[in-house]
Design a protein around this nucleic acid. Structure first.
Lengths: 189, 189
DNA sequence: CCGCTCATGTAACAGGTTACATGATTTA
DNA sequence: TAAATCATGTAACCTGTTACATGAGCGG
């Protein structure tokens, strides 16, 4: 069960409702973990039952009531133990790469379209993460912030996200180039 | 069900036994998909039942007999359909990044050790993929191979793997630097 | 003789995905 | 008036992981 730790790590930045947490898992947290809202609601319930997070009801008038959760001391201890335990190597599972692996035997038109799309999405994420990084470090330089900032965890993971998406985009563009050039060469036959 | 397509794509390069396929999923295929041997044996059985791959028994004397599988025409058609369908965006799920997200609140010693380890593993993969790329392109230059080679799918995915692991390694090293510098600053208090 | 490679699986369990469900308010 | 946002879940299903199981040959 690993989602729980991602939730705990995400909640370190402050109280969040299930809904807000789901939003966080759509942007910044998506750098290191992906989860659907349903999973998060279920996980929050479990974590609360085990005392790793605590929630408080917030009554709203124009909106449905919500419950804001924060990490308890037990929760922090759990994160501590998790961090001390050795991490298993991360692995990639990407449909698009499977398709590229098969590129020699299948129609490349649809593939090029998907690579184009992926490159566009990657660029959007790069832009998003860029503004996120600016917001996190405020008016300090990156060096200064990383040396003296209070909360650098999210910044570091975001740096990783930017690098990942840049590489993602560049690889897509390169692959599109290769496939298109080959298509032209093939057409001349 | 996506493992099936990864298996089909991996089998495009030639007949493989379940055991050999497991080896492939440990090296080259690991660039785009990860799976355990048990999964592969089960998946091969299913794929054979559905006629997407076909196996033939190879009797061996000094070794246990094995069954070599290849993709059937139906299997290629399935891959074709899979490639045409739109890919959902890939996502990352990495324990180590969760730990870095929480880095401000937990002990960093164990974390630095894990980052060091990860950097080492990444470097090993870079080296491995480097030799793999050389083997795939033979004596041709990369440009030449990508333009005129028969089977560029595995090469392209491997390029992606190299870029990913380089970025991985660099980010680990950078993060270690940051955490160690902060530790020294903190120690002076 | 111990551990590695070849070679293939089963069974129980944990975890994740998809589909379904509800309902009020704000914005275009 | 249609769509998006806020807010929370349940249930069925699919997938993946962990543990267990077997057995022969080869190399140090």
């Amino acid at each position: 069960m690993a989602l729980r730790h991602a939730v705990l790590a995400a909640l370190l930045d402050g109280e969040l409702s299930g809904y807000q947490l789901a939003k966080a898992f759509d942007v910044g947290v998506a750098n290191f973990w992906y989860a659907q809202p349903q999973q998060l609601y279920a996980e929050l319930t479990r974590l609360e039952k085990e005392g790793l997070v605590a929630g408080r009801e917030v009554v709203q008038e124009t909106r449905p009531n919500k419950r804001l959760f924060h990490v308890t001391d037990t929760g922090v201890a759990e994160l501590e133990a998790f961090t001390a335990a050795s991490a298993k190597p991360a692995f990639i599972r990407d449909d698009l790469l499977v398709k590229v692996q098969a590129a020699d035997r299948v129609d490349t038109d649809a593939l090029i379209a998907q690579l184009t799309d992926r490159a566009r999405i990657a660029q959007a994420k790069i832009d998003l993460f860029g503004t996120l990084l600016c917001r996190l470090r405020g008016d300090r330089t990156e060096e200064d912030f990383l040396r003296h900032g209070d909360r650098i965890g999210p910044y570091l993971t975001c740096l990783r996200g930017v690098a990942f998406e840049q590489e993602n985009r560049d690889w897509c563009v390169r692959t599109i180039d290769v496939l298109e050039e080959r298509r032209q060469l093939h057409a001349r036959h």
